[in-house]
Structure formats: C-alpha cells, structure tokens
Design a protein around this nucleic acid. Structure first.
Length: 156
DNA sequence: CCCTGATTCGC
DNA sequence: GCGAATCAGG
C-alpha cells in the first residue's frame, strides 16, 4: 500500500547489514538494494557500522590482469537480466540450490552468491563449492563476471 | 586513470 | 535522516 515511501525500511536495513557483514562491497550492496553507493555508505556511517577509516582494503584489483579484464557485474544488472526478460529460471551452470547455506556457514571455498529477495526472510547463500580465490561457484561466477566489453576495449 | 570507503555538507 | 558531493587512500 503506497502509504509512504520510506527510503530505508526494515528490510532495507537488514539487507544492508547482512550484505555488509557478508563482506560485500558497498557498490554491490547499493546495487542489490537499488540505491546509490553513497546512500549505503551514508546509512552505514549513521549506524556506526563502518569498518574503520580506510580507503579500500582490497589491495590489488583485477586491473592486475591486463588480459581478460572481467569487471564485477552489479547484481542489479544481473537480476534485471534474469528476471527482466524470461519467466523461466535461467540455468547458467551447475548451480545447486540444495547446497545453500546460511551466512554463518559460509566459507572461503563456498559460493557466497546471495539468494536474496526484497523482503525475504529465508535469505541464504548458494553454498556451492567455489574455485580457489573466487567468491562464487562456477555457475554463479559466470553470472557475476562479464567478458570485456568491446566498447571499453576500444575506448582507450 | 580506475576503483574503493568515509566524511562532509546541503537539503 | 537522507544522499550527493567531496575527501582520502590504493
């Protein structure tokens, strides 16, 4: 019911904290929730959930790999692609939903693909076996990363 | 240059 | 309280 349009509802803040604690970057959190990166950071600051004064903890970026510069896709884009066109559950690879685990059961070798739905109480993660160094499993990794765009390559 | 998070500041 | 703008770091 369109009684009000609160920017930060209970579900928003829960998702915010959850994703934040999950280790997701503010960019991804913002994309997932559907707000700007600054909005997420601003809210986090107000909630005193900041990780401490730091430019960025991720020392080296993918830029080190000059070849195949796969840039992390925003979940906002992914979800839009998945749910925005076809009604069928897009199969992208060996994704097993049966292995989904909770946040506390997440591990380095576990796919941390967030099975999140706006306002879902059964939030969980993929939990599949993820390759070394990769946050997602093979199937989700394919979704999470897109091949280098020609426009970007020729842009210079 | 790109990216990131944190703070500042106007609304 | 909210988020863009700005600052600060890598």
């Amino acid at each position: 019911m369109p009684v009000l349009s609160p920017t930060w509802t209970n579900e928003r803040i829960e998702l915010l904290k959850r994703h934040f604690e999950a280790g997701l970057s503010c960019r991804e959190i913002a994309a997932d929730i559907g707000v700007s990166r600054n909005a997420v950071i601003g809210k986090l600051s107000r909630l005193n959930l900041t990780r401490g004064r730091t430019g960025d903890e991720r020392k080296v970026q993918d830029r080190g790999a000059a070849r195949a510069k796969a840039v992390p896709r925003l979940q906002y884009e992914m979800l839009a692609t998945i749910y925005g066109d076809t009604d069928a559950p897009v199969v992208t690879g060996p994704i097993d939903e049966a292995n989904r685990c909770s946040l506390l059961e997440l591990a380095e070798n576990r796919c941390r693909w967030p099975i999140s739905t706006p306002g879902a109480d059964d939030f969980c993660f993929c939990g599949n076996t993820a390759p070394d160094g990769q946050p997602y499993c093979a199937g989700h990794s394919r979704l999470a990363y897109r091949p280098p765009t020609r426009a970007r390559a020729i842009r210079g």
